[in-house]
Structures are given as structure tokens and as C-alpha cells.
């Protein structure tokens, strides 16, 4: 069996760190206290085939539910981000079935009524707030649902901006809503119809289409590896401290 760098890291952490007990799906394991839930599960012998993606807290694949001793509260976290705690009882909930409506986005005009038609269950929300409480990204889920009920797509898009589509909200919903799918539609509408188009982007696309960069690109294509490396390392970069008005010295392609 080959050993990956990751395995080595995990093992070496194990040597130094203190072991603590955690319960994975009811079974007790002793794991190093400094590990994330994901690494602790791997340490305990689990192998991720699903339920893990980016390992960086953005893909939403690794939702985990847990409880602590003598505490009625439900806790959630992303397995790749949350550090284990002694005596936690956990299970992964990487996927939760939630109905996603089928639509051809470009047939939509971006009206609230279209969201109502695709997701009438929106109106079954009882404002219990279980969704907000369970969201590992601290999104105010109940509030974006409230905004959508009153047709405020923009507000819903803004409130749900940090959503990573993990689906935990849907797992707790009294009204059986697929909140995150509805919010995604709201963000799509907001981006396409309610946000002003970026003018400079339009100009740029027109420039590209008019062939303004053709020659330069062809030149790059024809370069050998050494030349490419040279060009890359020698390129002019925007300094980290640059102000709003910074422009490159070579403005041929601006």
C-alpha cells in the first residue's frame, strides 16, 4: 500500500498529539485531538469515496452533524474544517435529497413569480429558524427564504451569498423546502437580470472578438518552453500595495 504525504502528516500528528475519544456513527475511536473531523475519520480507518471534495471548506461535500455530551443541541460543521472535540457523537450527512426544479434558465425573465412557480413549497416555511441554526456557513437561511416569499430576489441573493450548497438546511426544514436550490436560482437571476452589466467586460469581449489579441496569442503559441518561462517570470505584476490608479508600464493591450 502506498503512503501519501497526507497519510504521513496524519500519522506524525498522531505521534505528538494526545488522543481523545470520539464516536463515529456510534462507535468509539481514539483520535489525535488536533485533527479535523475528516482527518480523524481517515485516521480511524474510514476512506472517503464520496462526502469529501475540496478539503478546503468551499465545496460543501463534507457536512457533518454532531452532538456533545449532556447537550440537547445539534451541532454541524464541515468535516474538513471542524476540529474534533472529546466525546462528540458524529455522523456525516454528505448528501440530503432535495427536489431541484428543472428549468431552462434563459426562458426565465427573472420575476419573483417564476420562483414561486418552480418552488411553491417556499410558502410552507414556518419561520422556525432551524435552517439558520444548522447552517455551517452561518448563512441566515430563514431570512433569505423570508426575502423570497416577499419577492425580494436581490436580498435573497445577497443573504445567501456564502452558501456552499451542503444541503444541511434542507435536512432540518419543517416545511420540507430545498432552501439552497431556491437560493441558487435567486442568485442566478440576480446575477443575470438584476445586477448591472460590467461595461468594461463588454468592451473586452468585443476586443477579443475583433481579434485584438490574436497576434499576441499566436506569438505565445509559437514560443518554446524556455521563452515562455522567461516571459512568465519577467512579467510585470501589480504590487500588493498598488492603489486604485495603478497601470502597467506596457499598456499595449489595455
Amino acid at each position: 500500500m502506498s503512503t501519501t504525504t497526507e497519510d504521513k502528516e496524519t500519522k506524525s500528528a498522531a505521534i505528538e498529539a494526545k488522543l481523545i475519544p470520539i464516536y463515529i456513527m456510534g462507535k468509539k475511536y481514539e483520535v489525535p485531538e488536533s485533527l479535523t473531523i475528516m482527518k480523524a475519520m481517515e485516521y480511524a480507518g474510514y476512506k472517503y469515496i464520496r462526502g469529501c471534495g475540496c478539503r478546503g471548506g468551499v465545496c460543501g461535500a463534507c457536512s457533518t452533524i454532531y452532538r456533545k455530551p449532556n447537550d440537547y443541541k445539534i451541532y454541524t460543521g464541515l468535516a474538513c474544517q471542524t476540529v474534533v472535540e472529546p466525546d462528540m457523537y458524529l455522523t456525516q450527512l454528505p448528501f440530503y435529497p432535495a427536489m431541484r426544479a428543472t428549468y431552462n434558465f434563459y426562458d426565465l425573465e427573472g420575476k419573483p413569480e417564476e420562483i414561486f412557480e418552480l418552488y411553491p413549497e417556499l410558502f410552507r416555511c414556518v419561520a422556525c429558524n432551524a435552517c439558520t441554526k444548522v447552517c455551517p456557513m452561518d448563512v441566515e437561511v430563514m431570512d433569505y427564504i423570508a426575502a423570497l416569499k416577499r419577492g425580494d430576489i436581490k436580498a435573497a441573493a445577497q443573504i445567501s451569498f456564502d452558501c456552499i450548497q451542503c444541503g444541511l438546511c434542507a435536512s432540518r426544514c419543517m416545511g420540507e423546502l430545498p432552501q439552497y436550490h431556491i437560493a441558487q436560482l435567486a442568485r442566478r437571476i440576480n446575477g443575470t437580470y438584476l445586477t448591472p452589466r460590467a461595461e468594461h467586460l463588454k468592451t473586452m469581449v468585443a476586443n477579443i472578438q475583433a481579434g485584438r489579441y490574436k497576434e499576441a496569442l499566436e506569438g505565445l503559441k509559437a514560443s518554446d518552453e524556455d521563452n515562455l518561462k522567461k516571459l512568465y517570470t519577467g512579467r510585470e505584476m501589480e504590487p500588493a500595495t498598488a492603489g486604485e490608479d495603478w497601470t502597467p508600464k506596457d499598456s499595449t493591450y489595455l
Binding site: E113, E114, F116, E117, P120, E121, F123, K149, R150
Partner: peptide, 26 residues
Amino acid sequence: ELKKLEPEQIADMPQIAMVSGFRKMT
């Protein structure tokens, strides 16, 4: 059944009709 409602009807109705109707009948 929500899925049996006509899309036109949903688009036409005030939200309070759906909120209250769903509360009473689902």
C-alpha cells in the same frame, strides 16, 4: 398537492393565499 397547481395560478395568486392555503391543507 402543490405539484398539481397550475403555474399560471401560482403566478397570479397573492402570497397570502398560498401561505394560508398550504397551512390549512398540507
